[in-house]
Deep mutational scan, measured.
Amino acid sequence: MDVFMKGLSKAKEGVVAAAEKTKQGVAEAAGKTKEGVLYVGSKTKEGVVHGVATVAEKTKEQVTNVGGAVVTGVTAVAQKTVEGAGSIAAATGFVKKDQLGKNEEGAPQEGILEDMPVDPDNEAYEMPSEEGYQDYEPEA
């Protein structure tokens, strides 16, 4: 019985440690998101679009440190934060509304985080759909 109880105690310690790591990862992701939003706020009209992409990228980098179902929630929060940063930029006159959601080359930025393969159960990952990809044929 002692062996059984000791095993359960060790398992509990492992769960607590994993929860603490997840909590730490979420806190880091939130900190990076805040950094990115402050970065966007300090940019001029020309830099705002690039700044919004930076927020998304920093958040995406930190999301990889967070495991399990938390990833889905962090990704949703990050996307809403990026959308909010863009709205703030438009409201303050840093950028025109028609410039939001495009990178410096004018290509749409939507789907940055949505296409990231995420499995809350950590069982399997699927690649994003290939609808947006084109076949590449090298020139002879």
Rank of each mutant, 00 (worst) to 15 (best):
E126D: 12
E126H: 11
E114H: 07
L8P: 00
K60Y: 05
V63T: 02
E114N: 11
Y136N: 04
P108N: 11
D119S: 04
E61L: 07
Y133G: 12
P117H: 04
K58N: 05
Y125L: 08
V118D: 12
H50A: 14
S129P: 11
V74N: 01
M1A: 00
D98T: 15
Y39F: 06
E123H: 09
E110Y: 07
P138V: 08
A91L: 12
A30K: 02
K97I: 14
E137I: 03
E114Q: 06
V16T: 07
G14L: 13
V52K: 01
S9Y: 13
I112Q: 05
G14T: 15
A76R: 10
E35W: 10
L113C: 03
P120F: 07
G36V: 09
K102W: 15
T81G: 04
I88H: 02
V74E: 01
G101H: 13
Y136L: 09
G51S: 03
D98A: 04
G31W: 14
A76Q: 08
N65M: 08
K102E: 12
I88G: 04
D2M: 05
E105F: 06
P117V: 12
V15Y: 15
K21N: 02
D115K: 08
A85V: 10
K23V: 05
L113D: 13
T64H: 11
P108Q: 10
V49P: 02
N65K: 09
V48I: 12
L8Q: 00
G73P: 02
E139Q: 04
E114G: 10
T64S: 09
E114D: 15
G41Y: 09
K80E: 02
I112V: 12
E104F: 14
T59F: 15
D135F: 07
A89S: 05
M127Q: 09
Q24N: 09
E83P: 04
E110S: 06
P138T: 07
A30I: 15
D98I: 03
K23D: 00
T81P: 02
V66D: 01
A140L: 12
L8I: 03
A29Y: 13
T75L: 14
V40Y: 14
E35R: 08
E104R: 09
A124F: 13
V26R: 00
N122S: 08
T22W: 15
E110Q: 06
M5Y: 01
Q24Y: 15
V49G: 03
G132N: 15
A17Y: 03
P108W: 10
N122T: 09
V16H: 07
G132L: 10
N65S: 12
K32E: 00
G31K: 12
K10A: 08
Y133T: 08
Y39T: 06
L113P: 11
P138C: 08
E110A: 10
K60V: 09
E126R: 10
A90V: 07
K102Q: 02
I112N: 09
Y39Q: 05
P117A: 05
G36K: 15
M127S: 05
A124P: 06
K43R: 08
T81W: 04
E126G: 11
V77Q: 02
V71G: 02
V118S: 10
G68A: 10
G14N: 07
E139M: 06
S87T: 09
Q24H: 12
G47C: 06
A69I: 11
G36T: 15
A19W: 15
K32N: 02
G73R: 06
P108S: 08
L8H: 00
L38Y: 12
Q24S: 07
A78P: 02
V74G: 02
G68K: 13
M1C: 00
E126Q: 03
Y136R: 06
Q109K: 15
D119V: 07
A30Y: 15
D121K: 10
H50S: 12
E123M: 08
G67Y: 05
S129V: 07
V82H: 04
K96D: 07
G106H: 07
E13K: 06
T81Q: 03
G68I: 15
D98S: 10
Q79N: 07
Q99A: 11
N65W: 10
Q99V: 11
Q109C: 07
D119H: 07
D2V: 00
G36E: 03
L38E: 03
E83L: 04
A89F: 13
A53N: 11
V55D: 00
Q134N: 12
K32F: 11
T44P: 01
G67K: 05
D115M: 07
V48N: 00
V48F: 04
E61P: 02
N103R: 08
G68S: 03
D115C: 06
K34P: 00
K12M: 15
V77E: 02
A89I: 13
A17L: 06
A29P: 00
K60A: 10
A11G: 02
A107G: 12
Q79E: 03
A107I: 03
N103V: 11
K60M: 15
E28N: 02
K97C: 12
A19P: 00
K23R: 11
G25W: 06
G25D: 03
T75V: 15
D115T: 11
N103M: 10
Y133V: 05
Q134H: 04
A85R: 04
L113G: 10
A11T: 03
T33Y: 02
L8W: 11
G7M: 06
V3S: 03
M127A: 03
F94R: 01
A11Y: 03
L8E: 00
V37R: 00
V3N: 03
T33S: 07
Q99H: 14
A124K: 15
A140M: 06
T72P: 02
A69W: 11
G36N: 15
V3Q: 03
K60T: 04
S42P: 01
N122Y: 09
K32S: 02
K45T: 12
P128S: 04
G67N: 04
K45H: 02
G106A: 07
E131D: 13
Q109P: 07
T44I: 15
E28T: 09
V70C: 04
E114S: 11
G132K: 06
G7K: 08
H50L: 12
V118I: 04
G84H: 06
Q134G: 14
G68W: 14
V37T: 01
V82F: 12
L8V: 04
E123Q: 12
I112L: 05
A56E: 01
E57T: 07
E13G: 05
T33E: 00
A89L: 14
N122F: 03
T22H: 02
K80P: 02
L8Y: 02
T22V: 08
Y136F: 06
V16F: 14
E126W: 03
Q134T: 03
K45R: 13
A124Y: 14
Q99G: 13
S9Q: 12
V26G: 00
K97N: 12
G51T: 11
K10V: 15
G36R: 15
K80N: 04
K43S: 03
V82C: 07
Q134M: 14
V77K: 02
T54C: 15
V40S: 00
T64W: 07
S87F: 06
E137R: 08
V15R: 00
G84F: 14
G25T: 15
V52E: 00
F4L: 09
F4K: 00
A76N: 11
P120I: 08
T59P: 01
V66M: 12
T59E: 00
E61R: 06
A85F: 10
E20H: 14
K23H: 05
K96L: 11
G14Q: 15
V55G: 01
V40R: 01
I88C: 04
D115I: 04
G25A: 15
E130T: 06
S87Y: 13
S9T: 02
A56N: 02
M116Y: 09
M5I: 00
T64V: 12
K6Y: 02
D115V: 08
G41T: 12
V74R: 01
T92I: 03
Y133H: 12
D115L: 05
T64M: 06
V15T: 01
T92F: 15
F4G: 00
V70T: 02
A69G: 06
D121V: 05
A140S: 09
E139Y: 12
A17I: 06
G25E: 08
I88A: 04
K45Y: 04
G25V: 14
K60N: 02
V26F: 14
K12I: 03
A76D: 03
V15A: 03
